[in-house]
Computed example of a mutant assay.
Amino acid sequence: MKIDAHQHFWKFDPVRDAWIDDSMQIIRRDFLPQDLKPILNENNIDGCIAVQADQSETETDFLLDCATQNTFVKGVVGWLDLRTENVEERLAHYSKNTLFKGVRHIVQAEANDFMLGKDFQNGIGKLAPFNLTYDILIFPPQIEDAIALVNKFPNQKFVVDHIAKPYIKSGEIEEWKTKMTELAKAQNVFCKVSGMVTEADLKHWKISDFNPYLDVVFNAFGIDRILYGSDWPVCLLAAQYQEQLHIVQNYVKDFSKEEQSKVFGLNAVKFYNL
């Protein structure tokens, strides 16, 4: 089974989605399952994981509704407030739906010590009993906090979104490489090769720009802990679906069929319990 392990749906709201500014006109509209399905079909991808883009339970409910009505949406990474006192109750509520696979918080928009907060960590500690995953969305300066987090919760399954958003456009790599290699030592951490084109030069990237970063990730995490994700429709800021897919396909073209199957689906099935 081929899985796109990271994409988004939304009904565009200019107030709620203020992060989609005037420079992002191409994604200032609705993106719904009926828009993605033909694209997945064209690229021989069987299903996808819908990931939250807004920090509200309304968003989680919307994504679960999308998944319930569209069988190709194999799971949802939603949002709920991990810092709230009734976090266990909310997790129990959402876990009744088998399509609810995990939780994400947009930590990249938070202060650097956010993941070290007592309330947040209390919420992280409640996920494993419900067999739920956690998606880590961060910028490179936050990787050190991520290392502390994943080591504190060795029985929790984590996945790093967008290879932690290295500064591909400027070619910076060494500090990110050191920290990602350290993060990958924790065997409970996976990594999504996703969201890379939007960290590169949006209009002038080339496939070779990504290979040094992919080298780091594949060497650090190994073939069993890497998941392909498109980050559609955000990827459209820099590439069509097939273009961003080709970056990863090109990188693994000399890998065995079994190894390619892991990157493009089997690892996602394992990680998200699909």
Score class of each variant (00 low, 15 high):
residue 2 K to T: 14
residue 2 K to S: 12
residue 3 I to C: 05
residue 4 D to Q: 09
residue 8 H to Y: 00
residue 13 D to F: 11
residue 26 I to A: 10
residue 29 R to W: 07
residue 35 D to G: 08
residue 37 K to W: 13
residue 37 K to V: 11
residue 38 P to L: 02
residue 40 L to P: 06
residue 41 N to F: 13
residue 47 G to S: 08
residue 48 C to T: 15
residue 48 C to D: 11
residue 57 E to C: 11
residue 66 C to E: 04
residue 72 F to M: 00
residue 77 V to D: 01
residue 77 V to M: 09
residue 83 R to C: 15
residue 83 R to H: 11
residue 84 T to Q: 14
residue 84 T to P: 06
residue 89 E to C: 00
residue 89 E to W: 07
residue 93 H to E: 01
residue 94 Y to C: 00
residue 94 Y to N: 00
residue 99 L to A: 04
residue 104 R to W: 07
residue 105 H to P: 04
residue 108 Q to I: 08
residue 118 K to P: 09
residue 118 K to R: 09
residue 118 K to S: 14
residue 121 Q to K: 12
residue 122 N to D: 14
residue 127 L to G: 02
residue 130 F to W: 01
residue 135 D to E: 07
residue 136 I to D: 00
residue 146 A to N: 02
residue 147 I to K: 06
residue 157 K to T: 10
residue 157 K to C: 10
residue 160 V to N: 01
residue 163 I to Y: 03
residue 166 P to I: 03
residue 171 G to R: 03
residue 176 W to P: 02
residue 176 W to T: 05
residue 176 W to S: 00
residue 183 L to A: 07
residue 185 K to S: 11
residue 185 K to G: 07
residue 189 V to R: 01
residue 192 K to L: 08
residue 192 K to I: 12
residue 196 M to T: 10
residue 200 A to Q: 06
residue 213 Y to E: 08
residue 215 D to G: 12
residue 222 G to R: 01
residue 227 L to S: 05
residue 230 S to D: 06
residue 232 W to F: 04
residue 233 P to D: 03
residue 234 V to I: 12
residue 234 V to S: 08
residue 236 L to N: 10
residue 238 A to K: 09
residue 250 N to R: 15
residue 254 D to P: 10
residue 263 V to F: 06
residue 264 F to T: 06
residue 268 A to M: 07
residue 269 V to I: 15
residue 272 Y to M: 08
residue 273 N to M: 11
